[in-house]
């Protein structure tokens, strides 16, 4: 005798026979039905086209001209001359090199400053750490100009607290942002401060998905805290690390607002970077065509850098 069948809750909700054949949706007919999915994409596509694709295309066209940015009637087509000028321009080369130098500060340092505390909080299960998260994330949402202005005050050699404390301790501190040796590292440290909170929040979120059994397993094998970190935490956060590296690399390559608000590329050209040089040539020097070529080059460099990061981090995943 067969046991009475248990009511299928799904059947009770849907009224459909769970043992029946799968339901085939009604056939779609007509051009409107085929176009329907695209209609839902249309608003986003329009926004993308108007605010991204068309301006990007326009920029490429502008970059092929010699134009002072005042009246389009004065623009003349010069082909790739702006790109050749940029690549051979000593000041652009210096700016490019400074963006490369900023990568350890804007990318690696905040990654470490975010990863290590996140791992400590997670592995040691420190209580109350979540209250720190909002404060740590705050710099990331502050405008870069505001960050630059505030840090310029903090590092002011006359009335800023940093130098006052150092002088009271008997040191002779430099002028930081006005010093030829210290300006670029100082700007880099400001950028690291602005970004590490973002990294911490990303990693804390990512750590939640690492199964605790993995930690228990390695502990049973005799692993210490550092070994837990290297064998479980870091591999488990590979995707988050890829995101952080990619986002921060973009920020390093397009660094502008913090530098504009603190040193404006100085002293000399010690903190000159590509984005700032682009703005100064396009608008300050009335060389809009040349400045746009620098913008296109900057976009390409950023795109290649991001792709390399994702490819490097993605191969392990595969």
């Amino acid at each position: 005798m067969q046991a009475p069948s248990t009511p299928d809750p799904l059947k009770q909700i849907t009224g459909a026979a769970t043992s029946a054949a799968p339901v085939t949706p009604p056939a779609r007919h007509g051009i409107l039905a085929r176009l329907e999915p695209y209609l839902y994409l249309l608003p986003a596509f329009l926004v993308f086209t108007v605010f991204l694709a068309l301006p990007a295309f326009g920029s490429v066209i502008l970059s092929l001209t010699s134009w002072n940015g005042v009246s389009w009637d004065t623009a003349t087509f010069i082909g790739l001359e702006n790109y050749i000028d940029a690549i051979t321009d000593r000041r652009f080369q210096i700016a490019f090199w400074h963006n490369i130098v900023l990568i350890p500060y804007f990318v690696l340092l905040p990654l470490l400053l975010g990863l290590i505390p996140a791992a400590v909080v997670h592995q040691l299960k420190l209580r109350g750490a979540r209250w720190l998260q909002a404060g740590l994330f705050l710099p990331y949402i502050m405008p870069g100009v505001l960050i630059g202005v505030v840090w310029a005050w903090i590092l002011n050699p006359i009335f800023g607290p940093v130098n006052k404390i150092l002088k009271n301790m008997g040191f002779s501190p430099p002028t930081w942002l006005g010093d030829f040796t210290w300006a670029l590292p100082t700007v880099g440290m400001i950028g690291a401060w602005a970004a590490y909170g973002f990294c911490y929040v990303i990693f804390i979120a990512g750590l939640q998905k690492i199964p605790s059994e993995l930690y228990e397993a390695v502990r049973l094998d005799g692993a210490n805290t550092f070994q837990e970190f290297m064998t479980v935490t870091v591999p488990g956060l590979r995707r988050e690390i890829a995101v952080v590296l990619s986002v921060n690399l973009i920020n390093a390559l397009r660094a502008f607002d913090i530098i504009k608000a603190t040193t404006d590329g100085g002293p000399g050209d010690q903190t000159q970077v590509m984005a700032l040089y682009m703005i100064n040539t396009a608008f300050g020097a009335n060389r809009a065509g040349y400045g746009t070529a620098i913008a296109v080059l900057l976009a390409l460099i950023t795109l290649i850098g991001s792709m390399l990061v994702l490819r490097f981090m993605g191969e392990d995943d595969a």
Partner: peptide
């Protein structure tokens, strides 16, 4: 003196003042 002279002049002056 020129449209882009602000950056050039100030940069060189900062180098001069720093002994560079």
């Amino acid at each position: 003196a020129t449209p882009d002279f602000y950056d050039i002049l100030t940069g060189e002056l900062q180098k001069l003042l720093a002994g560079e």
